[in-house]
Design a protein around this nucleic acid. Sequence first.
DNA 1: CGTTTCGTTGATGAGGTTCAAGACCAGTGG
DNA 2: CCACTGGTCTTGAACCTCATCAACGAAACG
Lengths: 234, 234
Amino acid sequence: MEAITDMMNGNLKLSSRDRAVLMKTPFLTGLSGSSLVRMLSAMSVASLPNRKSIFREGDNADAFYCVLSGYVRLYRLNREGREADIRICAPGDTFAECQLYGGTKYRYHAQTAEAVTLAKFDMQAVRDLAEQEKDVAKAVMMSLSSHLQASMDCIANDRLHTAPQRVANYILNRCPVDGGPAAIRLPFQKSLLAGQLGLAPEALSRAFSTLRKTGVTVRGRVIQVGDVGALREI
Amino acid sequence: MEAITDMMNGNLKLSSRDRAVLMKTPFLTGLSGSSLVRMLSAMSVASLPNRKSIFREGDNADAFYCVLSGYVRLYRLNREGREADIRICAPGDTFAECQLYGGTKYRYHAQTAEAVTLAKFDMQAVRDLAEQEKDVAKAVMMSLSSHLQASMDCIANDRLHTAPQRVANYILNRCPVDGGPAAIRLPFQKSLLAGQLGLAPEALSRAFSTLRKTGVTVRGRVIQVGDVGALREI
DNA sequence: CGTTTCGTTGATGAGGTTCAAGACCAGTGG
DNA sequence: CCACTGGTCTTGAACCTCATCAACGAAACG
């Protein structure tokens, strides 16, 4: 434990906030001390400004990442250059770890959607580590499982629900679960939320205004819900 | 090796065709002899008729499956009962293995889309095995990785491409890669393909007729492509 | 050979995208 | 204190794609 905090204070120069996020990652909780140390020594930390590319589709996949602060967009382009978001990664999220056992090239672009700090893990080092340490392999499996389930949710959501329904789902997923009134604050720009839900920004805006008659009011990033139960009926 | 074939001929009563498929599964290739034996002993084989439910959303996830012959649909329902396919599983595909480390309940329905034979793996047994045997853990990671990548492809595909483009993609993905003429045979009904691509059957039909002017002709399950290169320009 | 399922085609409408214009807001500098 | 600016968000209008419904033709199947 001494070694771990030394490491993080020393060559990795983590802020205490970033360190807390890092240790709460599903990826690192549940690791034994020795695995954790080896994991951290395969890691480096970087800070990036907004709108900065992290990697591009087709690049050699030699690292995967964990978001410590800010948000990251994973997306792909079509021939005409239109982009579609595949996933929005929040603090604590890991991305591109599917490349550990899934091919040598990234299959999509990754770009910061805010000022971001990232933990970068050397792919080959973690691959080796996962072969040796069962708890690392387990962490990988848990991460992959949850991402796979989230992706399947996303496919079903896209195919089953209209824009207002997707927005309602999003709100309900981060609301206290009871039936009364509630309020949440968006953690990022609406245009980013639109992308996450597979919508154009205009469509998100219209979805919000459709939800007004269900008791949803939006001002800036604050969303107020009159009755969570009513929203669930959408 | 003796033990393995004995096992498969004996209590598992596998046809030689099914056995070949089973052994070529990404899930089982690469396993050591002892892991393979233990894996097979956590497995049973079942045959099901068309349109039969394998499990339902919300059921206790106590097994995952490998398709040996036929096709399986994974789908989810919305409130009004409309169904959306999440994945179509072909012979050799594994499904629901994301439940090994991803929650105790199935998150979607699984149903046969033809007469099907399945290998059924006891979830807890494989979970235990994955904790002990590195090659099993690796097989799980590889399977999860490839499914995650396929799911992300699907999301991007849905969000970026129109119906004719999705169909063109589908055709190109199972065509010889050069530029000349080619022909493929659909392995299943068109309505199933429509679901896989996130389309209504009518939309698939119209997409095919749109592609006629690009040199694609469809008769029954046979699709002929005049020029693969031209199709790639869609 | 009838019955049933599957696939195609047409007509219509809902839901989203796109483009263009304007509202709002915070920050900047006169 | 106000005008200007750049970015974000909203609103309107036109268009497009696809789902839906209904009808029909074509296979598949007993």
